[in-house]
Design a protein around this nucleic acid. Structure first.
Length: 375
DNA sequence: AGCTGCGGGCCAG
DNA sequence: CTGGCCCGCAGCT
């Protein structure tokens, strides 16, 4: 039904044709190009009628990742994986966080989880949430297609997202982790207070990333990547700003936690509203982002060297902030792996286990002190 | 608990 | 027939 429209638009926008080596193909073609000389860099926010050819080695492509909330949809073709956009969750009150940015949450992919999510309230103003539909593909949600062929993974997007970007997957996971922490740990917990303080202090740091460099907490409250906090420099102390603007007059017993959520949200919608397509380069080497070059932290990268989206080099390191209260700062790529190796015992850390996986040799001193304001 | 992929089935055009 | 979507299941994290 939409095929004619798609074809017309694709002919105009096919980036894969720029090289001249791959003139045109469609995901439904019986035979896809095999003489591909250059694969594309992984695109976190594919939009409009674009096509990409990724290397089959690309982990992100292998996982069919997207920062848009996309769900699997059955096209009765096992060779082509089809996904459609799940819209974006926004605040009905159209509220803004202190930075002035709007709340755009990532819809849960699982149907049940999404229904549950919609019954929840805005993390900022507690108002009801609403869905902003995606109708960018002839009135229907944008669809993405993935097809594995030999050494390549072909990607095709149909439709333009006509709504704001949601949180990235990593950010949504981080938010859930914080919510879990809220329910698992008493709000007055010194640990939570210190974590909140750390979050807030991070705001005034020199982190430069404007992008989706993820902020992730572990299942309980463990890992933080402060470079998510950026672009929110303020003249009051962060505590003052948050307590004044977010929690003023709050009778909530968990006012400090509320602040923490808002701060997180700052980082989240910052990334949402400022994220261009990602083509970061190494500060020193001007190397393009390649699938195996690894962006810091999230699902969009793997490996040891990290390049944030603003070209700052981030060491792949865990930082222990306090021996007696070991929050760890790490790139998010490690957090799941790390967590899987370090299950919490109740709410307490197993320090021995922790030390096993700490690698302070990698710790870049400058980064360390930037990231460890509590020392 | 939630993400992801698969596939059966239904419906509209 | 194609495309959109719902649903349940299974594997995984």
């Amino acid at each position: 039904m939409l095929k004619a429209v798609d074809d017309a638009i694709i002919d105009q926008k096919d980036p894969a044709s720029r090289n001249g080596e791959v003139t045109s193909w469609d995901i439904n073609d019986i035979k896809l190009p095999q003489d591909v000389k250059h694969t594309d860099w992984f695109q976190e926010w594919p939009d409009s009628y674009v096509k990409h050819i990724y290397s089959s080695e690309d982990k992100n492509a292998q996982r069919h990742l997207s920062s848009w909330a996309m769900r699997n949809t059955n096209n009765h073709n096992s060779r082509i994986l089809k996904k459609s956009c799940l819209w974006v969750v926004a605040c009905s009150n159209d509220c803004s966080v202190p930075s002035g940015r709007k709340i755009y949450l990532r819809p849960a992919i699982c149907d049940k989880a999404r229904q549950k999510q919609q019954r929840k309230s805005c993390p900022n103003c507690n108002g009801p949430l609403k869905l902003i539909p995606c109708r960018g593909h002839g009135g229907y949600p944008v669809t993405n297609f993935w097809r594995h062929e030999g050494p390549f993974i072909f990607f095709q997007s149909k439709g333009s997202h006509d709504h704001p970007r949601p949180e990235t997957k990593s950010e949504a996971e981080a938010r859930r982790s914080i919510q879990k922490a809220h329910s698992a740990v008493p709000p007055t917990s010194p640990r939570i207070k210190r974590m909140t303080l750390f979050f807030l202090k991070s705001l005034t740091g020199e982190m430069q990333s404007q992008e989706t460099f993820p902020l992730l907490l572990s299942k309980q409250e463990d890992y933080i990547s402060p470079s998510s906090f950026s672009g929110h420099l303020i003249d009051k102390t962060p505590q003052e700003q948050c307590m004044g603007k977010c929690c003023s007059g709050s009778t909530l017993p968990s006012a400090d936690l509320h602040c923490e959520t808002i701060v997180l949200q700052n980082s989240l919608d910052s990334s949402i509203q400022h994220t261009p397509s990602i083509v970061p380069t190494m500060k020193s080497g001007h190397q393009p982002f390649r699938p195996n070059m690894s962006l810091p932290g999230n699902e969009f990268n793997e490996g040891k060297s990290h390049v944030n989206y603003n070209s700052s080099y981030i060491p792949s390191t865990l930082y222990q902030l306090s021996p007696e209260d070991p929050f760890l700062v790490t790139c998010a790529a490690h957090h799941k792996y790390h967590n899987s190796l370090n299950p919490m015992k109740g709410n307490e850390w197993d320090l021995e286990e922790e030390r096993k996986y700490m690698n302070l040799d990698h710790c870049n001193n400058e980064m360390f002190f930037n990231l460890c304001p509590m020392r």
